[in-house]
Amino acid sequence: MTSRANAILLAVAVLGLAATPFFAEKFYVQFFAKLLIMGIFAMSLDLLLGYTGLVSFGHAAFYGASAYTLAILTPQYQAANFWTSFPIAIAVSATLALVIGFFVVRTHGIYFIMVTLAFAQMLFFLFHDTKIAGGNDGIYIDVRPVAKIGDWQPFNLDNFVHVFYLVLVFFVIVYVLLRVILASPFGRVLVGIKANEARMRSLGFPTFRYKLVAFVIAGAIAGVAGYLSSIQFGVVNPEMMGWHLSGAVMMMVILGGMGTLTGPIIGAAVWMLLELGLQGLPKVGSVDLGKHWQLWMGSFIVLASLLLPNGLLGLGASLLRRIGKQRGKPDA
């Protein structure tokens, strides 16, 4: 599939989604919002995984960092200001990515995977084991941020439809932003680094710097997703930084097809539908299939990583090729 075909497909999907609040129930509107948030999160990881070749297993750290920032900025029983808390939260995620990136980006391959996971878990344990922001129970954001400019309030975050459209707008912004960045001189350098970092160095590119900036951009965008998630659900907990989320988002990227930007969005959708479906599995006799949904999810991950190296987009493309070939064959 070409990237143009992807973009057209995506535009149609976005328009379709934009219409959902007019006919869908609250549950589905919120589900789609969550799906789009995960889409933003997965796209941010794709910048590292699919375009720079940095396999980060700690990406949830930046997702959780901005969510915690909002929780800490929100005074008890009062609302935070959206226009200040949002940029601050993103700045915190970006700064954290800069600090962690400064240490991890100098490692390669398997070390990078382990070190990103270790630093993310460090943050997880920091919030899980201490009393900061509610410890392992997490913390509720009792009152959602207010987006007032003077007396005018362009949107109300207590209204789930408004939240949905806000998420949709951010989703489109992030997608376009990443496409622009990937086509820029900077983006081309990243793709070159993924293909052959040593060659990029000998061509005169200080690759450390570029990888670090990519890490920061991805962290900041993950922060956008984390912030949106915390206003949608009104709760922040250590799990938002945990490796289950880091693993899940990695799986979304791989499942859809990394290095495509659209693939991770599809991966996010498939993942969340799967999660919903598996959790809703019925009781068979004395065995509650839905309660142990992680067992099926785990088995699915094992199978998918064995059978789908190029993701669903790759699978689709090779199926299309095969059909094309068969059509092209003369009837013998």
Binding site: V180, I181, A183, S184, P185, F186, G187, R188, V189, G192, M200, L203, G204, F205, R209, Y210, V213
Partner: peptide, 19 residues
């Protein structure tokens, strides 16, 4: 093109198409 791009002062440009 990528090799030639390395001769620019920096490639930290994010919004202009490389082509």
């Amino acid at each position: 093109r990528l090799a030639a791009q390395s001769r620019r002062k920096t490639s930290m440009q994010f919004f202009r198409p490389a082509v």
